[in-house]
Design a protein around this nucleic acid. Structure first.
Lengths: 190, 190
DNA sequence: TAAATAAATTGACCGCGGTCAATTTATATG
DNA sequence: CATATAAATTGACCGCGGTCAATTTATTTA
């Protein structure tokens, strides 16, 4: 049970992540190609897959990072005083999650842990999100007949719905924010 | 503005769909390969893409068919008398939608219309689902302070959440049905 | 320090979805 | 019926994610 982590390993992985971040900064998430990443990192293609199970695993990590940055902001906020404030506070996170259709697709695919053994970064952010929101609900003008945990899960469900409809041709007219507002008024109000 | 639809076209498309259905019946949705489908249909690969924009378009159609079969059943049912009955009635549909992880992923991706111009089969089934459920809610012991339309959207949101958690390692313990029951009791009860 | 062992890296190769210029087949026109 | 025109079909080819036996580099052992 020896853990032999060479620092070369860390260095290579860091170079891969760095290169990937640059590609994304320049062209967005969807345009990322593994071949471009390894070229910039100066390693062979096989090396990439020695560090990440597949391309999605890299995305899980990078998008997870982005979500966590949003959650860092959320944690700074004081508990919203009403539904309007709650929705407004959540918006930056939802905007990031829907910055690209591809990003939203990856999030949906990984919001539940993808594999049995490995629980991905994105799945962990959903847990964290639930806890942050749950804490807010404890001292606000919201219904109390069910647990804050359940209310928080509902907020996630409605958030996903509102985000999904952003990409839906059938419902493009209403904004994500106003839609979520409608949902959460019906869900949270006593 | 002449529409010249050769019957050869229809025949070829039917052969492709037939072949695809057979492959799926034998090996499931995820295992479907376009090359296998065209081989069985006796046409070249390019022909497939003259009939379907991409592989997903075929999946949208075939999975959409499956959902519509479930909805046909649902329409036969009389309006559920309470939440328990409602959930029980919905289960066959949810079971089909989660018969494979791949199937659920495709459904999520296409539940909103994928492209602006073309509204896919799966997206249409969500509309249909909303209408069927909405009609049920009009005469049942459910809350009436918001529209049945909104309630139906919430049922969809919670259904998606319950299905997603079925594939989630973090929440594998509770069944899809009991989870949905918890959600909908909190959502629908007056 | 040299030999043995384990870990990291390499790049040719594969599978499979998707493209397109060229060809075949059907339909409209004189 | 012959010719022009449009539609359908073909298959070689490409892009890109992912694999793996062979090789290089680091660590352990004698």
């Amino acid at each position: 049970m020896t853990k032999t982590v060479q620092k070369r390993t860390l260095a290579t992985r860091a170079r891969l992540v760095e290169a990937a971040s640059n590609v994304i900064a320049e062209n967005g998430y969807e345009a990322l190609r593994v071949e471009e990443v390894v070229k910039r990192a100066g390693v062979a293609k096989g090396t990439f897959f020695a560090h990440f199970a597949d391309k999605d695993a890299l995305m899980d990590r990078l998008i997870g990072e982005g979500i966590n940055r949003c959650l860092d902001e959320l944690e700074q906020c004081k508990a919203p005083a009403d539904v309007e404030e709650l929705v407004a506070t959540l918006m930056p996170l939802l905007e990031f999650m829907t910055c690209e259709r591809y990003v939203f697709d990856v999030i949906l695919r990984y919001s539940g842990a993808a594999a049995i053994e490995r629980i991905g970064d994105i799945a962990m952010t959903f847990e964290r999100h639930g806890q942050v929101v749950s804490a807010w609900l404890a001292d606000g003008p919201f219904r109390r007949d069910v647990s804050t945990q359940l209310l928080a899960e509902g907020i996630q469900a409605f958030s996903v719905q509102a985000m999904a409809l952003k990409f839906c041709a059938l419902h493009a007219s209403e904004s994500m924010e106003s839609r979520l507002l409608t949902y959460l008024r019906a869900w949270l109000i006593v």
